[in-house]
Design a protein around this nucleic acid. Sequence first.
RNA 1: GCCCCGGUAGCCCAACGGCAGAGGCAAUGGUCUCAAACACCAUCCAGUGUGGGUUCGAAUCCCACCCGGGGCACCA
Length: 826
Amino acid sequence: MTEQEQDQDATRYDVAAVQDKWRKVWDDLDPFRAADDGSRERRYALTMFPYPSGDLHMGHAEVMALHDVIARYWWQRGYDVLNPIGWDSFGLPAENAAIRRNEHPATYTYANIETQAESFRRYGISFDWSRRLHTSDPGYYRWTQWLFLRFRERGLAYRKFSPVNWCPVDQTVLANEQVIAGHCERCGAEVTKRELSQWYFKVTDYAQRLLDDMAGLQGRWPDRVLAMQRNWIGRSEGAHVDFAVEGREEPVRVYTTRPDTLFGATFMVVAADAKLADELVTDEQRPAFEAYLADTRKASDIDRLATDRPKTGVFLGRYATNPVNGERVPVWAADYVLADYGTGAIMAVPGQDQRDWDFASKFDLPIVRTVQPPGGWEGEAYVGEGPAVNSANDEVSLDGLDVDEAKRTITAYLERHGTGAGAVNFRLRDWLLSRQRFWGCPIPIVHCPDCGEVPVPDDQLPVELPDLRGQDLKPKGTSPLAAAEDWVNVSCPSCGGPAKRDSDTMDTFVDSSWYFLRYCSPHFEDGPFDPEAVRRWMPAEQYVGGVEHAILHLMYSRFFTKVLFDMGMVDFEEPFTALLNQGQVINQGKAMSKSLGNGVDLGEVLDEYGVDATRLTMVFAGPPEDDIDWADLSPAGAVKFLQRAWRLSGDVGSAPGTSPESGDLALRRTTHRTVHEAEQLVDSHRFNVLVARTMELVNATRKAIDSGPGPADPAVREAAEAVTVLLSLVAPYTAEEMWERLGHQPTVARAGWPAVDPALLVQESVTAVVQVQGKVRARLEVSPDVSDADLEAAALADPAVQRALDGRTVRKVIVRAPKLVNIVAS
RNA sequence: GCCCCGGUAGCCCAACGGCAGAGGCAAUGGUCUCAAACACCAUCCAGUGUGGGUUCGAAUCCCACCCGGGGCACCA
């Protein structure tokens, strides 16, 4: 080594060498395996498991760095931590890659998993590798199928023929949750409609509970996620009203949130694509109706979503009777009414609904106001508060009542007459779970010409995927499984006759709706999970992941948990006690993308700055839930700080185990205050401030060594060790290296959290601020336990205060000992 | 249109209703160096989006508005 290299060596450490050194040691020590032996209190630190697409990227690096702060903190605090990792390994990208490469999707999938697993190890995340799972393993999806059958037994999985969202690019149906503004959530293609027979989960049965139980998540889940779920569930209150229809036995039922406006219902509208429209149309009007229906079918969902589109519709030739005033009202069909919301039919009240107003104006239908608009109202439909008008019959009058009173009155009237009732409606639709693709969990159902739908018996699970690859997987609008003759043709489990397997696979969100339960007993063979293990670990105290799953994964998982609760398999109704959504990593103000050319490669960042500096940069960037712009950050600054911290470990002049009692009091106070504050900062997820406080402690320790009590002072060791443990949450390699240089055995990750001495949290003296008329006029050094009276006397006696008072009369003195005195004078 | 979150220094961000600044980036000056890099020391910069209100005192609480981000949306 040259002199220069030696010189450098004293101030820097070799990042790559340190990483290599400790990774091996950690593999041997296996320090993060959950003991699950009841010796310590348990904590479950869950992070959303990755999809194996290529290697890890900046987003993974951020979320894992944040998540690991919590997990490692819990270890240091002495908890038994469950921090598992697995892969959400079914899904389309692997299948598409397999078609391109003419291979089996498993090849691509499991190769990527290995790459990612290796990267996670390098990245130093404190996972319990013994619990690793992959949803595409037969040993896992066997239980996904088992759960599907249990759901079906409870009437919660059913098959229905209806129009569904169809992605023409991915050649599969999509759940409502996967359609974003008319486009496929995954590939961005415009979604079209198809009529297909598909499997659904009856999530709507749980709508009210999904909504109600959010109350318990308030404050522990981000507000916006709760708001998004609330929006998505879309509960509304109103009433059902039955309208008798001429020439038809059955009345037509409508749902309305404004039963108070019933006297103003001057026509009805049925969704053009609803069965009801077809039933109601008269022979005379049928040609016009058919033509209209054909037109609307041509219009894409995108067009339909445009709210400012002119209204269209067609008269069905039929009349109904308004149940409160006996008026004869025409029945129309239109595409502004949705077939699958409410009853697919509405009472149109143009006076109080702008859409109905637009329709009435266009087709010259009568408009009656039933809520008095305020004076000077110049708008069209009036949807606000006001007294009811024009709303009376022989028996009941709403006139003069406000909206709420009128609703109650008319609903009671309808109930008395058997023509309606109060009703609740939800925007939430059932979860469409069938997919016409290969690389997913097969639906364990056999279709028999004689017996119908027959579940595959539990002892024959899993229904494994056949060995298809390459071109056999090409999407053709039906599942590739349907073409696998050997696989699809089976004998009926019930009658033994020839039958066919259901050839669709499940939405991958089914796989991920219960993986957190499997983690508790990943090798359990007698069920999807060991109920005892789940009782020990669940619900997860902390879940960390992206907000993109706010309504998909998170609502489905809540649904699954509630069903399992009802089945008696778990004893809790919410799976995730607390949720943290990290922001995105962006670059130069924009999401990273190939087309913008602003992508940042994680591998290159790690090579240049090292794992610890990368993690530190992510954690320090700002509040975890905010987006972080890579262009604003300084990984080089993180490297600098880590070197600075590391240098402390070589400068400590006392032996390991030295008692800090006799150490410099000022530094000891700083150390204990910092550790104490760090506890609160981690608990409240203010990790960026945690890093800032650690930096301060490094600065204070440096100062103590260079220009304070010196390196041999025991307080310096105490401080340096505290820095090391704090740093172990964010920068495990550097912390491990420091710990060793401080004379300790690995691993610092399990060293334990420094004990805080409450006596050292009390300041010797504090600065009290004295204000006159709210302006600071003096500062007094006082004891922290100074009395209000003493502080007031000292403040009033201060010459600067006297000058400021300038002979005025003191009117009032506010004393907040020991920090502040405010004197009001005139 | 409805709902949620946010707006503090050139930038990223701190601040139980009590001195607007903890930490970092950038910039500038210095020490070290033949010079530079690294390192170290020091300095500079805002009155908290706007307007009201509550209070002895407001970045913080309340109201209205502006701007930005996100969600829902012909859902009756």
